[in-house]
Amino acid sequence: DFETMSGPLIVKRKDHLLQLDFPSRKPEAAEMKEGLLKAFSISPKEVLKSRDWVLVYDSEADVRALKVNASLLSPKQFEKGGIICTAKGDGVDFVSRFFFPGGALFEDPVTGSSHCSLIPYWSEKLGKKEMIAYQLSERKGYLNCTDLGERVLIAGNAVTYMTGEIEI
């Protein structure tokens, strides 16, 4: 269990995956400033907002091919969060990419928090409570997603890259 700014974050082992329990953030229709939309090489078919902006595209191919001009996206233009680009997947339920202006990495490899918005959106669109998502960043990652209404479960593989000890 972790105490975070948005409340407790509970992580459990489920078979060979780590499962995180997050609050759901269903995105709503919104209008993004035209200047921000110009940063994307392909226009979305739908624009939504929760904590993050959610740009919905026609196809997985569009999300894969998407080029983003980071210089047109200043961190000052975003209160918190970033921009999620998503579409229905070809071999999975949905795909996404996550861009975070001003972050250490402009494109995040696999983003649990963005799925707090994607899971309720795609659950409603697809009429499913359990889905498989694929984040199409350079590193890529599959996530098992469950819509519980007020909460979402996000499960995926994790790789240990460091261990250590802290003495207090």
Results as ranks from 00 to 15, higher is better:
residue 12 K to C: 01
residue 3 E to Y: 01
residue 112 G to M: 04
residue 13 R to D: 02
residue 123 S to A: 15
residue 36 L to E: 08
residue 21 D to T: 03
residue 42 I to P: 00
residue 115 H to E: 02
residue 150 E to M: 00
residue 149 G to Q: 03
residue 100 F to R: 05
residue 159 V to I: 13
residue 52 D to N: 14
residue 86 T to S: 15
residue 55 L to T: 03
residue 128 K to E: 06
residue 35 G to C: 04
residue 150 E to P: 00
residue 30 A to L: 03
residue 117 S to C: 09
residue 43 S to P: 06
residue 56 V to G: 03
residue 120 P to K: 01
residue 11 V to D: 08
residue 75 P to K: 13
residue 53 W to A: 01
residue 28 E to L: 04
residue 166 I to D: 11
residue 15 D to M: 04
residue 138 E to C: 04
residue 66 L to T: 08
residue 116 C to F: 05
residue 104 A to S: 11
residue 8 P to M: 06
residue 100 F to P: 00
residue 131 M to K: 06
residue 25 R to A: 00
residue 165 E to G: 04
residue 111 T to P: 01
residue 7 G to I: 09
residue 26 K to S: 06
residue 90 D to Q: 14
residue 59 S to C: 11
residue 72 L to K: 15
residue 36 L to F: 12
residue 160 T to H: 07
residue 119 I to T: 13
residue 53 W to K: 02
residue 134 Y to N: 09
residue 73 L to A: 09
residue 101 P to L: 07
residue 7 G to T: 06
residue 119 I to E: 02
residue 154 I to G: 06
residue 17 L to F: 13
residue 139 R to E: 13
residue 105 L to V: 10
residue 31 E to M: 13
residue 53 W to L: 12
residue 159 V to E: 14
residue 54 V to W: 06
residue 115 H to W: 03
residue 43 S to Y: 05
residue 82 G to D: 15
residue 5 M to K: 11
residue 89 G to K: 12
residue 146 T to N: 00
residue 154 I to V: 14
residue 163 T to S: 13
residue 44 P to E: 04
residue 70 A to S: 15
residue 150 E to G: 00
residue 150 E to C: 00
residue 2 F to E: 05
residue 80 K to W: 07
residue 74 S to F: 05
residue 71 S to A: 15
residue 119 I to S: 07
residue 123 S to K: 02
residue 159 V to F: 09
residue 47 V to P: 02
residue 34 E to G: 06
residue 159 V to Y: 13
residue 50 S to P: 02
residue 125 K to E: 15
residue 114 S to A: 15
residue 117 S to V: 10
residue 128 K to L: 09
residue 3 E to T: 02
residue 79 E to T: 14
residue 124 E to S: 12
residue 118 L to G: 03
residue 12 K to D: 07
residue 90 D to L: 12
residue 51 R to D: 14
residue 149 G to M: 03
residue 120 P to M: 04
residue 119 I to R: 03
residue 133 A to T: 09
residue 7 G to F: 10
residue 12 K to G: 02
residue 42 I to S: 01
residue 48 L to V: 01
residue 37 L to P: 01
residue 101 P to D: 08
residue 25 R to N: 02
residue 93 D to R: 07
residue 115 H to A: 08
residue 91 G to Q: 14
residue 41 S to R: 10
residue 57 Y to N: 07
residue 82 G to C: 08
residue 1 D to C: 03
residue 104 A to H: 09
residue 40 F to C: 04
residue 135 Q to R: 11
residue 20 L to P: 00
residue 156 G to A: 05
residue 68 V to G: 12
residue 98 F to W: 13
residue 25 R to F: 00
residue 154 I to S: 02
residue 118 L to N: 02
residue 163 T to V: 11
residue 54 V to C: 03
residue 144 N to W: 07
residue 77 Q to T: 04
residue 30 A to N: 08
residue 9 L to M: 14
residue 120 P to Q: 05
residue 101 P to Y: 10
residue 12 K to R: 12
residue 61 A to R: 13
residue 19 Q to L: 03
residue 102 G to T: 08
residue 161 Y to T: 13
residue 7 G to S: 14
residue 109 P to F: 10
residue 11 V to I: 14
residue 51 R to H: 12
residue 36 L to A: 12
residue 46 E to S: 05
residue 133 A to H: 10
residue 75 P to F: 10
residue 121 Y to L: 06
